[in-house]
Amino acid sequence: MTQESGTGAAYWRANLRLVVFCLIVWAVVSFGFGIVLRPMLSGIAVGGTDLGFWFAQQGSILVFLVLIFFYAAVMNMIDRKYDVDE
């Protein structure tokens, strides 16, 4: 394996780690808090209903937004670190 493809592999692993982390958060807030884990959150009241309902109708969308911008920002740093930025 050449020096260059070794750096390429490390860059790709860093990207995958970040993607996996973001997708775990993505799944936990929507499928988790919004649907499957909703009964566990039923004790937390939010404006006439519970936290799970809030995640299903607003919270998950807000988290998705933060996730994409977080991913874009961190990827920019990773791009520069491995010297593959444009």
């Binding site: 993607v19 929507s30 299903a56 991913y71």
Partner: peptide
């Protein structure tokens, strides 16, 4: 009501997949 929250999460959550898995 709540049961159709799928539309809200589904039609926005796809953008997370687009941003990280396809678009770039």
């Amino acid at each position: 009501g709540y049961d159709n929250s799928s539309f809200l999460m589904g039609w926005t959550g796809g953008y997370v997949l687009l941003a990280m898995l396809l678009a770039p």
